[in-house]
Each structure stands twice: as structure tokens, then as C-alpha cells.
Nucleic acid binder design. Sequence first.
DNA 1: GCCAACGTTGGC
DNA 2: GCCAACGTTGGC
Length: 141
Amino acid sequence: MPKAKQHWLIKQEPSTFSWDDFVADGKAQWDGVRNYQARNNLRAMKPGDLALFYHSVTGKEVVGIARVVKEAYPDPTAVEGDWSCVDFQPVKALKTPVPLAAIKAEKRLANLLLVRHSRLSVMPVSAAEFATILELGGTKV
DNA sequence: GCCAACGTTGGC
DNA sequence: GCCAACGTTGGC
């Protein structure tokens, strides 16, 4: 039996790497993570897992869905330390982006780490939370 | 642009 | 091992 898919949320400033850049490239090496908690989350990802793509700072909204295509491997951009990255490819954009304000207003998302721990850049999301955000975004996988 | 929250660093 | 200082992130 295959294990149930895990769900994640990955954050990026669109001025650095936006959803549009991601779609244009067709894939992304998610490198440069320098936070242990975020790194450990990257390492827990399996190919096929789905991740919400969130624009921080400017935008502040979930804009799309990405799929893990390669599990964690050593981050080639790390000059020192023990860091990892994974590869994603875009699945689809949300029909309607889900802004942070809407997430905060939704009771079912009160425990979302994005709200409770706003500085974490890679975080797990429960299947229910994932489904709720897709519902708010008017989108099905 | 400011500030709060958090992680990391370094002195003791 | 504690804690103050500092840097970074991200919401407002």
C-alpha cells in the first residue's frame, strides 16, 4: 500500500522567485533554505507530495500548487553546513488566490502554521487544511 | 518604514 | 548552559 500523500506549504517572496517564474521554468530547485526546521520539513518530503505555493511580503497569498518531483538532496548552493533542497514542478495555479487575510478569517485554518509561525518558510499542512485552502481558492487538484 | 517574533551567535 | 545582542523575516 502506498503511504498517504503529505501536504506542505512553501513560501517565497515573489520578487525573488514568483509563481510565474516557477511556471515559466517548469520546475524549481528549492535551494537556499537555511533554517533547521524548514530543512527538516524538506527532508520529510516524498515525490508526489503536494505543496501550496505562497507569496510572502508582496502578495501575501497562496497562488498555486506544486508537486515534489525529487526528494531531498544536498543543497549545491550551501558553501558550508548540512543543508538540503528538493525539486518541485508546478501543478496548477489556484483559480482564485487565497490571501492571508482570508486564511486568518477561516476558523478551520486557525492552527495553520503559516498563521501561528509566520517566519517558517517550509511547513507541513494537514490534508484537511490543504483541502480547505483549495476550497477557498475554488480549485481542485 | 517600522516593529514584533524568532533564530543565531558569542561572552561569561 | 545561560542570556544579551544582533540579524533576518515578514506582517502591517
